[in-house]
Amino acid sequence: MKKCFQIHADDNAATLLEDCDGGGVEVIGGSPAGVTLVEPIRLGHKVALCDIKPGAAIIKFGIPIGVATQPIRAGEWIHLHNCRSRVDERSSTLDVETGAPTDVVYE
């Protein structure tokens, strides 16, 4: 079974330790002990461990690392498309797959 890692007991997000196409994943250090991915999530990216309401904090390392911008279901990928920083406005404009800027015109 593929694995993800929950760092702190308060976390509602866990980090994938390998690329995963979907389905059941073991949550190391976690409660619950497993989560079912509803979409592919890559190594190093985060999965929601429970349903998260818009405006609620995304918790990792036991601290808020951002705010949900739309409803997030357990097993969904958490990233730029549904989570924004509380300080950095620019990051919400970046390409969700590559992180490349979309706000600078080259020509």
């Binding site: 890559r42 390392f61 990233h79 730029l80 992180g99």
Partner: peptide
């Protein structure tokens, strides 16, 4: 400009707060 780059986002980091910790 916060200290977070396209490669960081592509690697799964979503916010500067997450990268900071």
């Amino acid at each position: 400009q916060y200290s977070i780059s396209p490669g960081n986002f592509a690697g799964g980091l979503t916010t500067i707060e997450e990268k900071s910790m």
